[in-house]
Write a protein that binds this DNA or RNA. Structure first.
Lengths: 337, 337
DNA sequence: CTGAAAGCGCTTACAG
DNA sequence: CTGAAAGCGCTTACAG
């Protein structure tokens, strides 16, 4: 930095201002400095910036066995976003076996300022309470139940499930099975509600026998398929609350020699990698995972740095758009079927 | 740190020595310091350590569309290991569209000292050459072809494929199909060679028609299944060069109403998440992904820091053990079948 | 075996 | 709008 300063004929302080985008620097001065930076190939040393500034920001991404596909996409998005925000991101696992106290100690040891909570941890109330009592900034990602002590970034799960069910209805399906997600994730309830509302709005009676429980694993999808694919009740379409379960249903259908989508339409939710790894590829709801990670990190970083005097800033609520992506696993119900 | 020093009645220098495990500190002094550290809940500030010491170490993990399951496991392992080694790890994508020059510029901007190359990038010779010319330390992970300019961490792919084929042979199978991996990954060749060698050692003629090409994607596994499951040539067992393809074969077999493992045994390679997401779960070769990440990072960090005078230290070669994990997708060939 | 000095590369106040 | 001073929390030599 000193070299840049002498090369540009200014003080190091001015170079610092240019780097940090201080608006008060004269355009002419700024240009001189920028030129020197470019010519010398100067890159600021982050360690020094952290040391000098008090505006350090260390975030932790807490996860517990989510699907690998979701986690890697979320991780990549978070890492990229953290770097842009000049925040340090550490990644830690927190399983149900660990006590809140043990976790608190771990976070303190890492001098964490903020916590990122993807599902299913985003809905863990005990965890949320413990974090709040440690005065940490927390962001819930993809939750269906924003907490009063946390920021939250999510899609409208209910509307998404409604849209997907509507889509199936418009394809002519009337008997649509539903495989729900873990009851301990708030989004699961919203998704099922969206499914039910679409049916009602369309004037169709809900058949409880067509709604079977799942827990987002492939395995649970297989079990659900066993029930729903029984000839005595088999619907013409099945909407699963996530892609893993939808993929399992496609697999089970094939095993029973049922054609997808000819005889059975199957739709998923999330648009993770498995959605395009099955055949036919899954029609599903795309969640903007990395955008969600990005927003969550930005909110956390800003709110941690802005934490000067005005201590209690309102918790942010960010609703991001979903998208129904149509692929090959669903089809119009033919009259004769 | 100053607080700890006064609390323990020593100089900050001594505290620093204790933290860094300097062997010359008297046990008595060390204990006093440790006690003070514990009591005060002191945690060293990494930014300051980096700034003060010249032994900073910044690593980049370069990836390009590997399977999500592999990437997330590798990422998690790398992140944890980097933190232990006190190395900063940044994660970047490098696709074939990007020129070596553009990548070089990106790495320079990030002041990278070392590069971690998981497959398939570990076998990209142009990339390896470009990195070497930038005098970066690089570690190839899971490669079958260690480069002279890089450290390498790998398993014995040939021996692993040999072991799996042997296992199938011992189960009574004589006609064993093989689905190979991308020819541009060095490990693919080793795996196929292991398969062939087992057959030869067992005194069985190789049927070229049973060896079909794949590229590690689920899709390619489906295509391979189409060929191998044709009644005219159908083998009693199929060994796929990775789990994704093996899962596709299980799926295809089910669609054709073939029982796995009753009528057809299927084995995979890697033991990624998909191996336990299919039904039956896949018998496969477990690669110690996170251990591999850990070793690669440790080697990189040490060699970067040790880079004092003795400039050209030998490139390391680390062979890690694999494990054949037996699950439900293979069975003994019954006499009548 | 332990300590006093200087400095890593920036940024925060504080001046002007 | 720009600069001179001091300091962030450690570690590297260098003494003793």
């Amino acid at each position: 930095m000193a070299d840049v300063a002498t090369a540009a004929g200014v003080s190091p302080m001015t170079v610092s201002r240019v780097i940090n985008g201080d608006a008060r620097v004269l355009p002419a001065t700024r240009d001189k400095v920028q030129e020197a930076i470019g010519r010398l190939g100067y890159v600021p040393n982050p360690a020094a910036r952290n040391l000098a500034g008090a505006r350090q920001c260390r975030l932790v991404l807490l996860h517990t066995n989510p699907s690998a596909a979701y986690l890697s996409e979320f991780l990549l998005g978070s890492l990229a976003s953290a770097r842009k925000s000049d925040a340090e991101l550490i990644v830690e696992q927190h399983d149900s076996g660990e006590s809140p106290a043990a976790l608190a100690a771990r976070l303190a040891a890492h001098r964490v300022d903020g916590v990122l909570l993807p599902p299913p941890l985003c809905d863990d109330e005990a965890l949320l309470a413990s974090l709040a009592s440690q005065r940490l900034e927390v962001a819930q990602v993809a939750t269906g139940a924003p907490a009063s002590t946390a920021h939250a970034v999510f899609i409208d799960d209910e509307a998404a499930a409604f849209a997907m069910t509507m889509h199936l209805l418009e394809q002519g399906h009337r008997r649509i099975g539903y495989v729900s997600g873990s009851p301990d994730q708030s989004a699961s309830h919203l998704r099922r509600r969206g499914y039910k509302r679409a049916l009602k709005d369309f004037g169709i009676d809900i058949e409880e026998v067509l709604i079977v429980p799942g827990d987002y694993t492939y395995r649970s999808g297989l079990e659900a398929a066993e029930r729903l694919l029984n000839p005595s009740i088999r619907p013409t379409a099945i909407f699963a609350a996530n892609d893993d379960m939808a993929a399992a249903i496609v697999g089970a259908a094939h095993r029973m020699a049922l054609d997808v989508p000819g005889t059975l339409s199957v739709c998923g939710f999330d648009d993770t990698a498995i959605a395009t790894a099955t055949w036919p590829e899954l029609t599903t709801i795309r969640q903007p995972v990395s955008a969600m990670a990005h927003r969550a990190i930005t909110i956390l970083a800003n709110s941690i740095r802005r934490k000067d005097g005005s201590q209690s800033i309102a918790m942010q609520r960010v609703l991001l758009p979903f998208e129904l992506v149509r692929r090959g696993s669903d089809a119009r119900l033919e009259a004769g079927t």
